[in-house]
Amino acid sequence: MKTLKWFIAVCFIAVTLSAFVAGKKARISIAIADTTGFKVDTLAHDLVVPWQLVFLPDNSLLFTERNGKLRIFRNGKLVDRPAFVIPDIPQRNKTGLLGLVLHPDFIHNRLVYMANDYWQGTKMRLQIVRYEFRNDTLIKPLVIRDNIHANQNHTGCRLVFGPDKKLYITTGDADEAILAQDLKALNGKILRFNDDGTIPADNPFINNDTARKEIWTYGHRNPQGLVFQPGTNTLFESEHGPTGGDEINIIKKGMNYGWPIIHHQLTKEGMLTPLAEFTPSIGPSEAMFYKGDRFPQLKGKLLVACMRGEGILILTLNSDKIVGQEIIFKEKFGRIRSLITGPDGYIYMSTTNVDPAEGKPRPGDDLILRLRPSGTENTLFSSQKI
């Protein structure tokens, strides 16, 4: 297909990025893929770190900005007035309004979940709150979990619902590495809840009096991508490592992923090593499996938004092994934070260049962008207020 010739004509140029792929016991280069088959549309600009993008059933795009605003993009334009604002939100290096997810039955119950930092006296804390989305705003807040230790970095905060309709939440170590191994702390973990904030009876530490029962896995440094693979329901995670050592992991119930005891290619009995480890750092953020029809060569591939790597990493999987990897739009748009397939099958992403200290804003930053095959019509699907 001519519109997808970029994927066939991969430009195998040596690059500084490389990855250690488990099972291959070798470090392999990440090829830079030709993107001439892509057309890029700028949908919104002059934003402040659009952290998470989600689509509503009416095809509107709902997204968080790190400065505390929940925004709506509808019918081809950004709605001027924010849908919701969290006042006095802490904005340090990476704190503020972060993860966002819709309930699996949103069309009937209108439930939305958001993660944000807040002040508890002079201390920074993290909370996850459930709201109802009515008349383009949020009402009836219900705290799912609060008082999670927070710092200006390593916040995690990707929220996803699994095929089991349970809520999965990533948390970073809040710059206190040892918390990731502390089963009495919620930091450096993947947490799992029922949709009302109660704890599922089949969580791995439910009968352990020395552990927090919300914990699904532990030993994480700063996990910012979390996605279930269609068909297999395997849970994949992307995670920031120290001085390189960024990871792609397969998440297994109750397991220890090692931080800070092991990282990079270190191993230790009872701890899991990553499916892939990237040095130098790529700064992996949101991960997704492409499920649309516009880019058939991407079907079933794992796409990872890269911040320090400034591009979209495309991983080809064979069962639980990575057998191919390319990166697209390398250093084209800067740091990429959120990545999602739209109802139209196109790919939507947000930049995160307003982030201190690594971010270097360009004119118009931050952006929401749409990727479509070259030669397709430049139209946006219509939507109506719900």
Rank of each mutant, 00 (worst) to 15 (best):
N116L: 01
P284L: 08
D366K: 04
F12S: 13
Y346N: 04
F278L: 12
G258I: 11
F38S: 04
N207K: 13
L380V: 08
F228K: 02
D366C: 09
F236G: 06
G359R: 02
M349V: 05
V79A: 06
C11P: 02
P82F: 06
F295E: 01
Q297S: 15
T16D: 13
C157Q: 08
M124V: 07
V10I: 12
F236C: 05
N233E: 13
I250F: 03
P82C: 08
S60Q: 05
R92F: 06
G121T: 09
P284T: 05
G241E: 12
H45S: 15
H103E: 13
L138I: 10
A31P: 00
K166S: 10
G324R: 02
T198P: 11
P163W: 00
A177F: 07
F205H: 11
T351E: 10
K330D: 11
G334L: 03
L371H: 00
P50H: 11
P284V: 08
P230C: 05
K184D: 12
T243P: 01
I282E: 12
N249Y: 09
T279I: 13
I107M: 11
E269S: 15
L142H: 09
R192I: 07
K39T: 09
T170I: 05
P82N: 10
K332T: 14
G345M: 03
T232W: 02
W119V: 02
E214A: 14
D88F: 05
P104F: 07
K77Q: 14
A180Y: 04
L126N: 07
P204C: 12
S18F: 00
D365L: 08
R337C: 12
D46P: 00
V227H: 00
I89N: 03
T3L: 01
A14T: 14
R74P: 06
I89Q: 02
P90E: 01
R158G: 02
Q127C: 09
I328M: 04
I347H: 01
G68F: 07
V354A: 15
F381P: 03
P343W: 04
E239T: 08
Y118D: 09
I13E: 15
F84S: 03
I169E: 10
Q181D: 11
K268H: 14
N93L: 08
T376L: 01
Q52I: 01
S374E: 01
P50E: 14
E277T: 15
I368V: 13
D105H: 14
A150L: 03
F329L: 09
I8C: 05
L179I: 06
G258Y: 09
E214M: 08
S374M: 03
A276R: 03
K184Q: 15
T171G: 07
L4I: 14
I251T: 14
T16Q: 13
I312C: 04
